[in-house]
Amino acid sequence: MTEYLLILVSTVLVNNFVLVQFLGLCPFMGVSNKLETAMGMSMATTFVLTLASVVSYLVHEYLLVPLEVEFLRTISFILVIAVVVQFTEIVVRHTSPLLHRVLGIFLPLITTNCAVLGVALLNIQRQNSFIESILYGFGAAAGFSLVLILFSAMRERIAAADVPQPFQGAAIGMITAGLMSLAFMGFTGLVTL
């Protein structure tokens, strides 16, 4: 039980995928201009990430290993992720057309979110069990959502600030992300897995 809790703390805070491992930076910079979009994106990514880590674990364990074709795992995971994202898109389009319009291009972009592929591959590399894989994927997504939502609330405030002209827009966003990363280094050593 403690072990599972430690996985969550580790993936959400200590080894945060965005701020410490620098994965998934494109949606982090791209969808963080408004709080509402960021929340929608967080939910979509959480859903996709958790589902993708489950499916890729199953594919690896029951397809690649018995057939002894583990070297195909990167390409097969990319396929799995693409399928999961398409599935999410269909679900979102039918359940919430508004969210679908707001997320627009970013939903298909989850396919190329390196955090999703990164989680799937790291699960295999760390030899996580089935439950651990789910928690690892969910924790990664929760950490991603946490910083994305906090970051978008901050960017709304920066948009109103008198930022020097050369630093406006993405530049000040990058600096802010860097300072967030600086503070997240305070969690170093909290959990060693």
């Binding site: 609330a153 709304e156 503070a183 305070g186 969690f187 050593g189």
Partner: peptide, 29 residues
């Protein structure tokens, strides 16, 4: 408390304040 007790830094005022600074726009909202 979390960073002082379980982290690797003996005092963590700077990190704790900065981490809550991120949350301020969200808290204000």
């Amino acid at each position: 408390y979390i960073i002082r007790a379980w982290g690797s830094y003996p005092d963590a005022v700077a990190f704790a304040v900065l981490l809550m600074n991120f949350a301020v726009p969200f808290i204000d909202y």
